[in-house]
């Protein structure tokens, strides 16, 4: 497989996982603004575990990153699903917490060792992250659309009152959703330090979490759509890199450079503009606090 394709896959990977994470969260009715922070936390955790260790530790690193993400998701669920605080404000606070927290941890536990990334492994092993991503998407799909708990999850995002009328707890459904979303977000961050590069840098997620928030819309809140949307944007970034490098060899022009750098964002807007005013069915109760139990 040629380098360009590999590059596109690498660029898409964290976006796909982040979009998948947000899909789960938003299907259950929560906008997770802490996504970027969860990614950073996952990235640091994975790097901390796997730096300087044998490739076998990569699995442990991913597990640890997902555990950290899960706990953060739990935290957000506590605030938004149980205590009915505003989702945006809580997520925003969580983002700051993680941004500062990873900075403090990074500063405290500095190590000069790097991670042996999946990309550096030979043969089939380097494909594990991508296989895992597809597997996660498949599992999420099966869970959300074929199991009772998954349908409850969707009900929590669609009509929490209806869910409560059946005797189930919307708060638990949203908590479950955020835990899974958090775990996925942690893994999305882990790919930054175990697939794309082998070191942690403060603020390395560089806005990918916020990009993912818009990718969910492109994905129409569907797990498969999340993969496609992530791949779409990753391809756009890869193309931009490829073309601007070619441009450099010729006669670079600042206007062309501006157009190239803007292309991925314009492409995303165009993709939806071209699709037309089809009704974009967001989960009906997305962003709304759960109705009071009293």
């Amino acid at each position: 497989m040629d380098e360009f394709t590999l590059q596109i896959l690498r660029l898409s990977l964290p976006l796909m996982l982040a979009a998948l994470s947000e899909t789960v969260a938003e299907r259950s009715g929560t906008v997770n603004l802490g996504l970027e922070g969860m990614m950073l936390s996952g990235a640091w955790t994975a790097c901390f575990i796997a730096a300087g260790e044998s490739p076998g530790m990569l699995i442990v690193a991913w597990a640890a990153a997902s555990a950290v993400g899960l706990i953060l998701g739990l935290l957000l669920a506590l605030w938004t699903a149980w205590w009915r605080s505003d989702q945006i404000v809580s997520g925003w606070a969580l983002h700051f917490l993680c941004l500062g927290g990873t900075g403090l941890l990074f500063e405290r536990f500095k190590s000069s060792e790097t991670v042996t990334t999946f990309s550096e492994l030979s043969g089939a092993w380097s494909w594990v992250p991508y296989g895992a991503t597809v597997l996660f998407a498949g599992l999420i799909f099966l869970w959300m659309f074929r199991t009772r708990s998954g349908l409850r999850l969707q009900a929590a995002g669609h009509s929490p009152q209806g869910l409560r009328a059946t005797g189930a707890s919307p708060a638990w459904a949203r908590t479950m959703g955020l835990m899974v979303a958090g775990a996925l977000a942690g893994i999305a961050g882990a790919t930054l330090t175990t697939v794309l590069t082998g070191q942690f840098v403060e603020g390395m997620s560089a806005g990918r979490g916020f990009l993912a928030l818009s990718l969910v819309l492109l994905a129409r809140w569907h797990p498969a759509g999340a993969l496609v949307a992530g791949l779409f944007l990753g391809t756009a970034f890869g193309l931009e890199l490829h073309l601007s490098t070619a441009d450099q060899l010729g006669d670079p022009s600042p206007l062309r450079e501006l157009l190239l750098r803007s292309a991925p964002y314009l492409a995303t807007i165009l993709a939806l503009a071209v699709a037309g005013p089809k009704r974009l069915r967001a989960p009906a109760a997305l962003g709304q606090p759960l109705p009071s139990t009293e």
Partner: peptide
């Protein structure tokens, strides 16, 4: 960085 942590914690605390 600690400043950021405090910001997040204070907002979370006020919300709670």
């Amino acid at each position: 960085r600690f400043a950021l942590v405090v910001q997040g914690l204070v907002v979370l605390f006020v919300l709670a």
